[in-house]
Write a protein that binds this DNA or RNA. Sequence first.
DNA 1: CCTCAAACCTGGAAGC
DNA 2: TGCTTCCAGGTTTGAG
Length: 309
Amino acid sequence: MPELPEVEVVRRGLERWVTGRAIGAVTVLHPRSVRRHVPGPEDFAGRLAGRLVTGTHRRGKYLWLTLDSGDALLAHLGMSGQLLVQPPAQAAERHLRVRLPLRAAGAKPAPAAAPAERPAAAPADAVELRFVDQRTFGHLLVDTLVPDDAGRGLPSLIRHIARDPLDPAFDDEAFAAALRRRRTGVKRALLDQSLISGVGNIYADEALWRARLHWTQPTETLDRERVAAVLAAAREVMRAALAEGGTSFDSLYVNVNGESGYFARGLRAYGRRDEPCERCGTPIRREVFMNRSSFSCPTCQPTPDGARF
DNA sequence: CCTCAAACCTGGAAGC
DNA sequence: TGCTTCCAGGTTTGAG
């Protein structure tokens, strides 16, 4: 389940393969993967054909490629999405949803040919960007760019997505103030992408374990220092995941080169039910919230008075 | 505006 | 072995 560090690893992996290349004839194999591109799959492919990729960007868990048309190819990996760069002749993956052929700028478009007729020795500069997604919670779409609060281009569909904690322009004070205005539990707030983006179930639990807060801690009780501690913890665990080259556990999640990331050994709370807390030895508990698991230490993270869900 | 929960998916694991 | 149920969960949508 890609969260911010995993998506950033994908972005970095894509950068050298896609920037400066031209997109060829896009094939949408599963319409659900472009369901948020309202004009439909044909329009999606039409807006990409012949366009040059000018850069790679990310906010929270959203990733986008800027195009020379002024638009952007926006991607969200959902729970099981992967963006792979493969040789064009590589066999199709089991859950391949969209094919985006890429060629070096200036190279002639490949002649239209059935896959079986492709030359065995494809030009070295021809690659294929592939969107593979088992559970189809992820999606791709072409969107227009609008200026963000710093005047930079942001896909219009994600205007409501807050900056993420690794963004230098993230405003800690504004976040603390917004949290205190909320009347909810701290974990629900951490998962609210309009307050802070990039934090999912795993990194929320990890940040709360490090900050010694239970997930039901009411947001209005969090003073500036507590919020600073939560943010510092989230940044620490995300940077550690990033430093390990990405990621986590789920074999579904694969980085741009098709290698499974592995950050599971750095997790102190998530997925460790009944295992001893690394600070105090108390067995980690698992509680269900919003139909998903929350892992915490009963001693370091006691359930607060006035718990909010 | 805020809060909250349902719905959207698939396949591996666990239970029977 | 084979069937059923549970579980993973980010985001949008709409009700209250």
